[in-house]
Design a protein around this nucleic acid. Structure first.
Lengths: 128, 128
DNA sequence: ATTAGTGTATTAGTTAGATAGTACACTAAT
DNA sequence: ATTAGTGTACTATCTAACTAATACACTAAT
């Protein structure tokens, strides 16, 4: 019923961190908004409260949430921080991509054309 | 002296798999070429022979090497397989990239322009 | 048959992450 | 002061994956 699928390759608490960060960046979670309590979130995701606490600790370390002891955990009100977060995440993803492609021997230009070709082929397919 | 750095986030045997696959794709390891023996490779990389065996088992499962019991482990002679391997690896990397960027709310076009911008900025920097 | 070199199998130890249970501390409302 | 809801801390246990150590099995050459 509740237990969603988590990948075995990455700690659950980090997968939840990723999910929340994505929601913030996409604007689905707004500044100053309150996150579910540790215990509530644990129920929602079907994991142990301790795992959620790790998630929230990590989010606080990243400075994307603030915890008010006794009140709850809230998305940061610093919109500039969120904007910067999106940029940093984007750069991180690009750097991994470039590194991986480079290891296969692709040049910068080939990476761009490779990506474009991928999109073209995807649009040309029947379904999905 | 020998022990190179491995990331803690990924199994060592898989990191060695990645390295060997990259060498094959880049043409640094040629078809029918013999890989170092399990024990020799273990010494070279500074890990346990058992870890190398897992590496070779995985490579065999991927059909990029063939093992001849009592003789050694050899790169496949099937050049078409290697060509396909490069394509598959490339698609895999692109798919991860696209998935990650999509999760941040980027469109297909924004991914391409984002990548191009990244390269332009990189070329405009002082060093590295 | 022996030896050296090879892959393979089996068992054991180590570690990180997840879980579980309990207790503590702060806040707001009553 | 009490209560309910919140984050935090601590300890212990469990589990899966990785790593390690050792022994076994096959191949080729002598």
């Amino acid at each position: 019923m509740m237990g969603e699928e988590f990948q075995a390759s990455k700690p659950i608490y980090m997968q939840i961190v990723d999910r929340i960060v994505q929601q913030i960046i996409r604007g689905e979670l707004l500044p100053e908004e309150k996150l579910p309590s540790v215990r509530e979130m644990a129920i929602q995701t079907g994991v142990n409260p301790n795992t959620i606490q790790r998630t929230y600790s990590e989010l606080e370390r990243m400075e994307v949430v603030e915890t008010k002891r006794g009140q709850g955990t809230f998305i940061t009100e610093d919109e500039q921080m969120i904007k910067q977060l999106k940029v940093n995440m984007q750069i991180g993803i690009i750097e991994v991509f470039v590194k991986n492609m480079k290891e296969l021997g692709f040049s910068d230009k080939e990476m761009v054309t490779g990506l474009e070709t991928y999109f073209e082929r995807k649009r040309g397919e029947d379904d999905d």
